[in-house]
């Protein structure tokens, strides 16, 4: 069957099997391997992408079900050569070691901050509670998201970076 969806702002159309999962559509059909594929049972959360702005575990959604919707992956976080504040926060606060959980963590963080620009620590921990990190003990991930909340993207920031 043919599916059309918007991925990181670009409309894509591909012929797929109805049983193709969104995570494999992104990684194998589109070659966007920034989305990781982990437990395959909607437990680990490394496959999280944003569908219409909401975090979704892409191992448990069909590409077919996503047709007509907007998908954002980690490849779509930076804009115009400028990292998203969440990405910058993960750099500043060492929010990753092995990096496996990172794309899912960052997208969930992005969705959280879009909805709640000033979350407290409890809200951050709740938001990422469906995602597993085996390196950091979560402390630096929480601090990374706090950094991003304290440094929201602004046009002035972009201009400063370009200047």
């Amino acid at each position: 069957m043919q599916v059309t969806m918007t991925v990181n702002g670009t409309e894509v159309t591909r012929d797929v099997e109805p049983r193709l999962l969104l995570v494999h559509f992104l990684r194998e059909t589109l070659g966007l391997t920034g989305t990781h594929w982990g437990c395959d049972t909607s437990n680990c959360g490394t496959c999280v992408v944003l569908v219409d702005g909401e975090p979704v575990k892409s191992c448990t959604q069909l590409a077919a079900m996503t047709a007509g919707h907007e998908v954002r992956t980690v490849e779509g976080m930076a804009a115009g050569g400028t990292l998203d504040p969440v990405q910058q926060g993960f750099m500043e606060e060492h929010g990753l070691q092995c990096g496996f959980c990172t794309p899912g963590m960052m997208l969930t963080a992005r969705a959280l901050l879009d909805r709640n620009p000033d979350p407290d620590e409890g809200e951050i921990r709740e938001a990422i509670s469906g995602q597993i990190c085996r390196c950091t003990g979560y402390a630096t991930i929480v601090r990374s998201i706090q950094w991003a909340a304290a440094h929201p993207a602004a046009e002035t920031t972009d201009q400063e970076v370009r200047a």
Partner: peptide
């Protein structure tokens, strides 16, 4: 019930 991401679906 499940976790926040699963609850979105």
């Amino acid at each position: 019930i499940a976790d926040p991401v699963v609850r979105n679906r």
